[in-house]
């Protein structure tokens, strides 16, 4: 412990609160990965960590280093900008890939005569 203990009181408490909120939200999002039943529901869960979770931990880091180094430290903005640009791309592609694979599978099942399981392409099957 070198750095963070030298923070003045208000900055320490702001940082602590923001870090806790961010980590809590991220944990909730990842719990959603476990708890939600279907893929199309689960895909929403990590956005919690990627938006407000990341945001509040980045702000905590900015507050902490700005006070520690007594100059504005803003390079965390780069991560924030980068995350806001990339998260939509990954999630959009992932949902499209899932839809594509579901349709593909349904088509293949239909082509096999006598397949009994009736799975529709736009819904998906439960987790386990």
């Amino acid at each position: 412990m070198i750095g963070a203990t030298e923070l003045p009181g208000w900055a320490a408490i702001t940082t602590a609160l923001l870090v806790l909120v961010g980590a809590g939200l991220t944990l909730t999002g990842s719990l959603g990965l476990l708890r939600l039943q279907r893929f199309y529901e689960r895909v929403h869960a990590p956005t919690l960590g990627a938006t407000l979770g990341t945001g509040s931990i980045l702000i905590a880091s900015m507050v902490c280093f700005t006070v520690l180094q007594t100059r504005p430290v803003l390079h965390e903005i780069l991560i924030a900008v980068f995350m806001t640009i990339t998260t939509p791309i990954t999630l959009m592609l992932l949902v499209r890939a899932a839809l594509f694979r579901d349709r593909h599978e349904a088509a293949r099942r239909e082509s096999m005569a006598g397949a009994s399981s009736g799975e529709r392409p736009d819904t998906d099957r439960p987790a386990s």
């Binding site: 929403h44 869960a45 640009i85 959009m92 499209r96």
Partner: peptide, 15 residues
Amino acid sequence: LACIITATPGTLWVN
């Protein structure tokens, strides 16, 4: 709009 819709949890841009 794609960034906004995806950044608000609970909605996802598909196509």
